[in-house]
């Protein structure tokens, strides 16, 4: 209970919130992240492929980057998942309805889909067959990952790719120009306010 002469706490003067709100310099944060990642890569490089510690390291990396993706991406996706799915479905429908590929962009996208599907499909087939004459991707890369340096290099590349997939290509907060509506081919703020402010993306 405050007395009549007691002043409310002024948070602009109280030092702790100001200290807590002070952003860590980005360069220092990036340096710490790079050093931590390098130490992690060096540790993972010397782990045996089938060891529990190796598996724990891989799962930890996956978990950390998933959390990072959620933390960084709140309200900053460029499209809603529903809009994105409808766009993909519309593109596929137009290709199959036309019976032929009408634009270079659609044809090019189809080639990418075929390449990714062929790679994943053949790897899955080879893995399920477990035959010597059907090597999987991990066996093809095994000659490299059997060496500590090779495992370190590939693991670092894998981590870097995961970091980009988790944090890259985000919409800037409060930047309407970056809000691209791919479904309608428009750029700029959407009617009814900036999307993502409701945190549903």
């Amino acid at each position: 209970m405050r007395g009549p002469g007691r002043q409310p706490l002024d948070r602009r003067v109280w030092p702790l919130p100001r200290l807590a709100a002070r952003p860590v310099p980005r360069l220092v944060a990036a340096l710490v992240a790079v050093l931590a990642a390098a130490a992690f890569v060096a540790w993972e490089a010397v782990q045996a492929r089938l060891s529990t510690s190796s598996h724990a390291g891989i799962l930890s990396a996956i978990g950390v980057l998933l959390v990072l993706a959620l933390a960084c991406g709140h309200g900053r996706q460029r499209e809603r998942s529903r809009t994105w799915s409808l766009g993909v479905a519309r593109a596929l429908r137009s290709v199959f309805a036309a019976g032929r590929v009408r634009t270079a962009a659609v044809g090019g996208a189809l080639v990418w889909v075929l390449l990714i599907a062929a790679t994943a499909g053949w790897d899955a087939t080879s893995f399920s067959e477990q035959r010597h004459d059907l090597p999987t991707l991990s066996r093809l890369f095994g000659d490299v990952t059997d060496h500590d340096w090779g495992r370190a290099l590939l693991f670092a590349a894998w981590l870097a790719l995961g970091a980009y997939l988790a944090t890259g290509w985000r919409r800037r907060s409060r930047d309407p120009a970056a809000d691209v509506d791919h479904a309608n081919g428009r750029t700029g703020p959407r009617p009814g306010g900036s999307p993502g402010e409701d945190g549903r993306r």
């Binding site: 993972e44 492929r49 190796s54 891989i58 799962l59 990396a61 996956i62 980057l65 998933l66 993706a69 991406g73 996706q77 460029r78 499209e79 809603r80 998942s81 809009t83 994105w84 799915s85 994943a120 790897d123 893995f127 999987t136 991707l137 991990s138 890369f141 990952t145 495992r151 590939l154 693991f155 894998w158 790719l161 995961g162 997939l165 988790a166 290509w169 791919h182 993306r201």
Partner: peptide
């Protein structure tokens, strides 16, 4: 561009890492 696509990409990345390493 979207959460669904990003999660699909991350799932593929995670599976590839588990498979390779």
């Amino acid at each position: 561009g979207s959460w669904l696509g990003r999660l699909l990409a991350l799932a593929a990345w995670a599976e590839a890492g588990w498979h390779l390493f």
